[in-house]
Design a protein around this nucleic acid. Structure first.
Length: 350
DNA sequence: AAGACGGGGGC
DNA sequence: GCCCCAGTCTT
């Protein structure tokens, strides 16, 4: 029996019932695919429900404010996805009359849509014969075919895409693509794959050569950097505080946070007061500073660890623009800030 | 070609 | 502590 037949047979018996599997509408497929980039289905699912309820049509998403979109995206990570999502929604709504491009070629021009997502939408919505290659596909194909080319090398990316295209069921690319990914997610898992009961265990090279645990091969990534954040939590009279929007290319672009003073290493109050960045925040103001957390909060991102201190600053006549404390939770903030607010804010604000 | 970009979960 | 997750964009 050929590859596609075996795979599809497995899929029809084992597939999960997911909300985006009950539609071919490009808006919903696109939404789910953007959300699921580098994201587990269990983590993305609640967000899919939130977005489809808040924005039933692409026009609704286009009409929202960026802050509104980011607030709903809060906690899902990789926030450039949310900004690109919003920009593409506005483009599709306003320039394309609400209709998504109907081919891989057209789709891949959209912001936030790369080879994987364009292939997924084109195959699922329009039955275009283009193969998806996500983390699941790399793992399944590298094992069954015994391919040790690094999956994050230029050569590997081309090689796996070509193999997936070759295997693709041209009659039903939508089912084939989803079946291959679902098989990787549920059966040919990173750890403890179910090789004993695998439909491919008679031909899997990795199983035959005892290389299941070595495949796929991936080039190692840069090591984690440590950073030291000092947030100035202005505890202004009348229950107000100060938030600033992060700008630029770094993490959390577009999200809000307390005024930040970054340091080279952990510091105490005297050192904090001596930093130029701190003086810039609090020039000639009359203020007191009190450390909120005895031990730094360690917030771990995949590429950096943030050692964070929250300093409660009591300042009179501050020149910064303050917002009411009850409005703080309306702003999109990093999980690090949200966690602090949940500890710090009085109950009546939650 | 190599980094940057989040947060959560498995072991 | 390290790896992975329905990847994309920038440098």
């Amino acid at each position: 029996m050929d590859f596609s037949k075996r795979l599809t047979h497995w899929y029809l018996q084992n597939k999960r019932d997911l909300p985006w599997r009950n539609t071919h509408e490009p808006y919903h497929i696109w939404l789910s695919e953007i959300m699921l980039q580098q994201t587990r289905i269990e983590q993305g699912l609640p967000y899919y429900y939130k977005f489809t309820e808040a924005f039933p049509r692409v026009f609704d998403l286009a009409d929202a404010s960026t802050d509104e979109v980011l607030k709903l995206w809060q906690g899902l990570g990789y926030y450039s996805r949310a900004r690109n999502l919003h920009e593409t929604a506005k483009y599709v709504a306003n320039e394309l009359d609400g209709k998504f491009p109907e081919s891989y070629k057209g789709l891949i021009k959209l912001k936030g849509v790369g080879d994987y997502t364009a292939s997924a939408i084109a195959s699922i919505c329009y039955n275009e014969p283009v193969a998806v290659v996500d983390g699941n596909v790399y793992r399944v194909l590298s094992r069954i075919f015994g391919i040790d080319t690094p999956i994050n090398s230029t050569k590997g990316i081309k090689e796996f895409k070509a193999l997936a295209m070759e295997l693709l069921d041209r009659e039903d690319p939508a089912t084939f693509n989803q079946a291959l990914m679902e098989f990787g997610a549920l059966h040919c898992k990173p750890q403890n794959p179910a090789c004993e009961v695998c439909p491919f265990n008679d031909k899997c090279i990795a199983l035959k050569e005892h290389k299941v645990k070595e495949l796929p091969v991936k080039l190692k990534k840069a090591k984690v950097k440590k950073r030291y954040f000092n947030y100035l939590v202005f505890d202004l009279e009348n229950n107000k505080t100060v938030l600033e929007q992060r700008k630029g290319k770094g993490i959390w672009n577009g999200l809000y946070q307390f005024p930040l003073v970054e340091s080279e290493r952990p510091i105490g109050e005297d050192e904090l007061r001596s930093l130029d960045a701190f003086k810039k925040e609090l020039g000639k103001e009359d203020f007191s500073v009190e450390l909120f957390n005895r031990e730094p909060v360690v917030h771990k991102l995949s590429h950096q660890h943030l050692y964070t201190c929250f300093w409660l600053v009591n300042s009179s006549g501050i020149s910064k623009e303050a917002i009411k404390l009850e409005e703080v939770l309306d702003y999109p903030v990093p999980v690090l800030i949200e966690n602090f607010l949940n500890e710090y804010l009085p109950e009546e604000y939650k």
